[in-house]
Design a protein around this nucleic acid. Structure first.
Lengths: 334, 334
DNA sequence: TTGAAAGCGCTAACAT
DNA sequence: ATGTTAGCGCTTTCAA
C-alpha cells in the first residue's frame, strides 16, 4: 500500500487522462472497457487511494454524519447509533465524538460541520441554549435525538418524557402506593429531559390529589452512587416512600442495590422503576422495571429525516414524538 | 451563521489579500495590527468559517485520529478513549466509529486513513490478519490497543493477558480450589486476547499439576446470556467446579446471576472472577472480583506514542505491555 | 509586512 | 468516449 499516488500518476501509467480515471473511479460516465481495464490495472499496480479530501472539497459533500454523544459510558446511546447506522446503510459514514457535556467541546465538534468536514450532525444530549442551536439550524443539517433543547427550532426526535413519567408514577399510585419518591438530577444540570420527567411526576401526584413531599424528591447527579445515596436518604425518613421513580436506569440500579443491601426485598417492600431500558436492567438482581425509550427507532427516524433534509437541501425544525413503553420486570410490579 | 463565505470574501471585505487573511487565521506570520483588526472584523461580520477540507488538503494533515471500536456497547473502551482524549489534549480530535467486528467495515473505516480524512487510526479489537494490518503499518500511522493481532508488526499497547489469566487461576488454586472452570468464547471468534487468557488458564492448571477437564471449559459468545448458560452447564456437572474464571466481566456477571438464582452464595459456594473491571462490576450483587486492565493508561500511552510517530513521521511496530491488577471484591476472595 | 500566483488532488463543464 | 481545463478554498513560496 503506497501513499501519495495521485490520479495523475494513475492517468500517466494507464495512458489516459485524469478525467477518464475519475470516471472509472466514480462510474460517473461511460468509459470503454479497454481503458477501464487499463485504469483499473494501474490503480492496482500503483496502490492508488483517491484523496477523499480533494474529492469532498470539489463535490462539496463528505457523506459523513457526526454524532455528538455526551459520554461513551452510557450504553443507551448505542441503540440510537445502531439505528442511525442501519438507516444510512453505508450511504453515509456515522462518526462519533464525545462532548462530556461541555458546551465548548460541543461547539468545537459542531465546527466539524460548519467547517465542511461532515455533512450533518446529530446531538444526543446537548447543553447549548435554544438561541445557540438555532444559529446553526437554518444553514446546517443538524438534529437532536432523545433529548431536546428548550426554545429551539431544530429537528428533534424523542419521546414524551413528561407523559412517560406521569404514566409510571400514576401506575404506582393506582396500585395503592401513594408515597412515591423521585430520584433526579440537580437543578444546575440543565436537562429538559429531567425537567419533563419531574413535571410528569408532579402532575401524577397532583392529578391524584396527593401533596408533594419535598423530602421525597432526591436530587444528585447521574451516577450509580447518587442512586444509592437517594435510597439511604429515603430509608431514613419517618414516613418513607413505598415506591421510587428514577429518571435513569443507573440511578435505579444504585437505588435498588442500596435497598437490597439494607435488607429490603426490592419489588415487594419497595418498588423501583428506572428509565431508558439499558442492558443493565436485565443484568442486576432484581431485574429493573423501567420506562423504555425506543432508542433504535429514534436512530432510524432521525437518520431518515436527516437524509431527506440533506438530499432536498431542506432544514426541518419540527419535533417527532415516539412512543415509550413501560417494561415490567422484578423491581416493580406496575 | 452563514454558509459558503470564503477567504476570498473576507479578503475583499477587509481590503486585503487572501494571503493576509490566511495569516491572521493561522497566526502563521506577522500581520500589522491594523490589518489584523480589519480582517477579524470582516470575519465576524461575514460569519466566516474556514473550509477545513481545503485547509487539510493543502496542509496534508487533518489533526484527526480515528478510533475504531468493535461496539459502543462495551463500556471498557470508554476508558481507553478518555485516556486518548486527555493525551492529545485538543491538539487532535478523536473521532470514533464502530466496526461491529466486521472485517469489511474495519477496512472501510481504515479507508478514512488511507484517503487522508484522518491522520492516524487506532483499533480496539480487530479481526484483520497480521498480513492485512501490516499492509498499512509501514505507510500509515496505525496502532492497536487492548487487543493485539497475531503476527502483526504494528504499534500495540496491551496487558499480558496470558500472565493475568495465569495469575487469577493460580490464586484460585492457591486457596485450595483445584476445580476451576473457564468461560470463554468460541474458537470461531479469532481473538488473540481470549486465546491468551485460555493459555494462561491452562498454564496455571499445568504448573499446579492439575489435569484439564474439558467439561470445565465453556465456550460461547461475549454475552451475559452466555455467562448464564455457562453457570447452568457447570451446575449440572457431577463434579462441579468450585471457582469460575471468565474472560470478561459481562460473562462473569451472567454467570454470577445464574448461580445466585439457583440458590448458590456467590463468593462462598462458588467463586467467580471476571476480566476488564468495567463499571458493571460494582453495580451487580455480589460485586465482581476481576482482572483490571489499565484502560485509561492504555489510551494515554497509545496516543502519546502515536503523536510522536505522527510528528516525527516514524512508524512504530513494537508492543508495549502495561500491568494488570487483580481487584478483589465480593464474588471471589482471591 | 504584504500580495500575486502556484498548487494540494480531485470533478465536471465543455469541446471534440 | 475522451481530453483539456477551470475551479473547489485554502496555504505558502516568492518577490516586492
Amino acid at each position: 500500500m503506497y501513499i501519495n499516488v495521485t490520479i495523475k500518476d494513475v492517468a500517466k501509467a494507464a495512458g489516459v487522462s485524469v478525467a477518464t480515471v475519475s470516471r472509472v473511479i466514480n462510474g460517473s460516465s461511460s468509459v470503454s472497457d479497454e481503458k477501464k481495464k487499463m485504469v483499473n490495472e494501474a490503480i492496482r499496480d500503483l496502490g492508488f487511494n483517491p484523496n477523499q479530501l480533494a474529492h469532498n472539497l470539489r463535490k462539496r459533500e463528505t457523506k459523513n454524519i457526526l454524532v455528538i454523544i455526551p459520554s461513551t459510558e452510557n450504553t443507551f446511546y448505542s441503540e440510537i447509533i445502531r439505528g442511525m447506522e442501519d438507516e444510512v446503510n453505508h450511504e453515509f459514514d456515522i462518526i462519533l465524538a464525545s462532548s462530556y457535556s461541555y458546551v465548548h467541546t460541543e461547539v468545537r465538534l459542531l465546527g466539524m460541520m460548519t467547517n465542511h468536514l461532515v455533512d450533518a450532525a446529530v446531538i444526543l444530549g446537548s447543553r447549548l441554549t435554544g438561541a445557540q442551536i438555532d444559529e446553526y439550524s437554518s444553514h446546517y443539517h443538524i438534529a437532536l435525538a432523545s433529548e431536546n433543547i428548550e426554545n429551539s427550532h431544530v429537528l428533534t426526535v424523542l419521546i414524551d418524557n413528561e407523559k412517560a413519567a406521569y404514566e409510571a408514577v400514576d401506575r404506582f399510585i393506582a396500585i395503592g402506593l401513594d408515597r412515591v419518591a423521585l430520584v433526579t438530577t440537580n437543578t444546575d444540570i440543565i436537562a429538559p429531559t429531567s425537567d419533563n420527567r419531574l413535571k410528569g411526576y408532579l402532575k401524577a401526584l397532583r392529578s391524584n390529589g396527593i401533596e408533594v413531599s419535598p423530602e421525597l424528591i432526591y436530587r444528585g447527579d447521574y451516577s450509580f452512587e447518587s442512586g444509592m445515596a437517594a435510597a439511604k436518604h429515603f430509608m431514613s425518613l419517618s414516613a418513607p416512600p413505598k415506591a421510587v421513580f428514577c429518571i435513569s436506569d443507573i440511578l435505579a440500579a444504585g437505588c435498588s442495590k442500596a435497598y437490597s443491601a439494607a435488607g429490603y426485598t426490592v419489588g415487594k417492600d419497595i418498588q423501583i422503576c428506572g428509565f431508558d431500558n439499558i442492558p443493565l436492567c436485565s443484568f442486576v438482581t432484581p431485574t429493573l422495571t423501567t420506562v423504555a425509550q425506543p432508542g433504535y427507532k429514534m436512530g432510524r427516524t432521525v437518520a431518515a429525516r436527516l437524509l431527506s433534509d440533506i438530499k432536498n437541501n431542506t432544514y426541518s425544525t419540527d419535533t417527532v414524538m415516539l412512543d415509550h413503553e413501560i417494561i415490567v420486570r422484578e423491581s416493580a410490579i406496575l
